[in-house]
Amino acid sequence: MKRVLSIFLLVLVSAAGCAKSSQPPYAEDPWVREPPPGMSMLAGYMILHNPSSFELTLTGASSPDFAAVEFHNSVMEDGVSRMRQETSLVLGAGEALRFVPGGRHMMLIAPGRQFSEGDKVLIELSFSDGSELHITAPVRSGGGH
């Protein structure tokens, strides 16, 4: 009986070890580039991590400070920079999506006020499972670092 119990415990422990992780996504080093005066579009960057063992789909973003927030990717084709909108982005289990200058970025459209270095931009990311992630991204000048 003792033996049966220990096997049972062993199974239970190993099952716990394999349990699916559902840690929420998080944004590493989010920031928004300080815009020249009067600009109608700003770009935001971050590394978005999905530490869970489930695939996540990023379906949208919004900000109280902007009319709209979209995802765009600056792609280079034959030396020509083209900006393409991405309506949803898939984050594989344990993966990260890099939003970097000259690449994928959050396009923050029509600011409600002027932003300068040191200001904070609130961004809400929405996922297909209904969850949301709130980010506070500082405004930085130049290369961002």
């Binding site: 580039r33 020249p36 770009a43 600056s74 200058p101 690449g103 130049g142 290369g143």
Partner: peptide, 17 residues
């Protein structure tokens, strides 16, 4: 162009540096 949120500011910031 100035309505370019990503590539142009990135490149001009690089040129300034």
């Amino acid at each position: 162009f100035t309505h370019c949120p990503d590539v142009c500011p990135t490149t001009l910031a690089i040129l300034s540096q």
